[in-house]
Design a protein around this nucleic acid. Structure first.
Lengths: 213, 213, 213, 213
DNA sequence: TATGAATGAGTTTTCATTCAT
DNA sequence: TATGAATGAAAACTCATTCAT
């Protein structure tokens, strides 16, 4: 689908588009290669070979190996943040069932992303394994998630459909942690789609009702 | 305090003890260095330098760099598994308050371990970043934790102090995920001891009572 | 003189020729270095330095140090085998003088090769000193020489110009041994070209007429 | 059998004898190890382990790894030289049959030595592969053999049972070369005792009668 | 512009030899 | 005296990055 360009902005030339496209191909290849072999084991040559270009061409599009990892991660973070935001606003839910439904939707959206184990691997393992800076970037996403979640909780507590004594920040922490940890556990080789669904269900149920009730 | 040796077992010679001790010093140094710089960035030379020995002396005690990482991880896994087991049996708790107290104890024991961020970093980041094999080892620990947790849940459900419709395995997954994820979130630089305590409390509360009640 | 390429086979590009040429330069340097310092004492760095390239460039052309030795030896073996074959066929000689002349020619051809002491050193000393595999390769050459020689002897015996009771295989062994041993003795520092000629003469004479007559 | 010591020379003490004995054991082990793995691949540790002593003890008896190789080689050279000398004198033979018998005896004695492939390997391959100095030592043996052989030839020529026009030095060279080369060819894996005997026979026959007659 | 060739910095590992017990 | 522990020098090899075509 052709992208529309605003008036006054000249459409990029063919060459520029080609360049953009190649850039994207390289990004995709890097994503695959990093996920398969890990950042350190992956060579720039591997990435280039997968795209079918010379190693040197790689450097016309990215500063360094580290640079492309950063870009891959940025993309993933952006995507995850969108999933958290999409069609959801902290004050959209006014009743418990509404909120519950909303949580279910968010959970499924995140699962959609995390079901691609490569995303989990790169975001949680490789990013942190390479560099404190990159780790910070990812942790920024977590902070964002925690804050968003806390906002939801505040809304629910204010409206009265969540516990009045809820420590919203700390609990948000716990919930985001649960998402995170579940995603990591999903790296275990033997988890199929069905199990994932049961897990989400159990997690959402736990979140709302706890073990007891 | 001198260690007692059983009759018939000759106490290790001075040289042997020295050797053991040096081995332990190297292990400790490796633990630190791996945590600080990451496995790939850390050189055998760094480890040796920290202990104050020559590079090649390292190889008198460990097969390879990979070998020592494995040993470090094995130690950590063992320690974590002990913490999970210590003084706890799945059927020890017969009432909800008892179980709650037990969970609190376990949570604190794990937090004690995880408060050393280096442990978290090595176990969760480095292990997985290096090798599929090592990742498996760590995941074995998680499986153990999940199974143990499920056993507790089964006990509680059978005794009637937990929900009758509890999907014990899936929920155990979610709970272990929560522990895991919280540990990782603990790597964020700005978390102090007090915050940790609040987090644990919120997590335990969430686990038992959920958001609602 | 420009090499002619058959129709349909595009002439190698300049870059390819350059690469071939560099490869050959490295081979030559390795040949020299191995002969001078011996395989074990020679470093890849020495070879690279002699060509005037960086150490790692070496690895763009050869798999490993062992690899290049193998290639050097293969070349030498091929050359020696050609010398044995060149313009000679086992049944070319029908009379004793003809055969005698043929032997003289072969002897001179081999001497031509062996006069380069580096060849002898690498083929007989280094190859065997490094690896059983390489030794096998060289011994394959000897076997070839023995078989070829035996074929000549058979021809001569059948035609009646050699002893009827000649044990052709065993004698071929002895003759090839003589060539081999003489080549090794040629490594002695004090042997000049003239002496070599006398040696060949004496050897050929011995071979045909023995000590007695 | 106890060795007799001349009057006035005090018999070595027990400790000294033990030391001598251990030294010999180390020499034997080195001989084996060098032959099996080659000088460069063999470690001092291997030698020590085979004797059952610590690596360090090795250095109480030999200066260095190189040193022990030298001693091993010296021993072998001495043994080979003895075989060449034993009960033979250049002028012992006065007739052709006598000389022929003498040659046969010498050939068998040398074969006895060379049938231990380890001797051949160490003397011809390892010695030359390590060091120019060691190679010289071995070549000294060859020179000795050549000179001795030439002396025999001179005697035979003077007495009239060998060709009058024999270039004794050059032919001696050829003959010693034949011995040498045959010994090397003996390293081929598929040569059994019987073949060896046929080879010797063929060589001696060739030496005396040539191909023709 | 795209490329493959070239590179050197960096790392793991080995092993002969010395030292302290 | 015998030993194992310690060592550092050396060496092969890899790979991200630059350069010349």
């Amino acid at each position: 689908m052709a992208v529309k360009y605003p008036a006054g902005v000249s459409q990029p030339s063919y060459a520029q588009r080609r360049k953009q496209q190649l850039r994207q191909e390289i990004l995709d290849a890097a994503f695959d290669v990093f996920a398969e072999r890990g950042y350190h084991d992956a060579g720039v040559a591997d990435i280039a070979a997968r795209v079918g270009i010379g190693h040197s061409t790689f450097y016309r599009h990215f500063e360094s190996k580290r640079d492309i990892l950063e870009q891959v991660i940025t993309t993933l973070i952006t995507r995850a943040a969108s999933a958290l935001n999409a069609d959801n606003a902290p004050d959209a839910a006014t009743t418990l069932p509404e909120y519950r439904a909303q949580v279910q939707r968010i959970a499924e959206a995140l699962d959609e992303i995390a079901s691609d184990l490569r995303v989990v691997r790169i975001l949680l393992i490789e990013a942190s394994g390479v560099d404190a800076d990159l780790q910070q970037r990812v942790f920024g996403l977590f902070d964002f998630a925690i804050n968003a979640t806390a906002a939801y909780f505040n809304n629910g507590r204010d409206r009265g459909y969540l516990r009045a004594d809820l420590d919203t920040t700390a609990t948000a922490h716990a919930v985001v942690g649960m998402i995170l940890g579940t995603a990591i556990l999903g790296l275990k080789p033997d988890i199929d789609t069905n199990t994932r669904r049961l897990l989400i269900q159990a997690a959402v149920r736990l979140m709302f009702d706890g073990l007891v009730d």
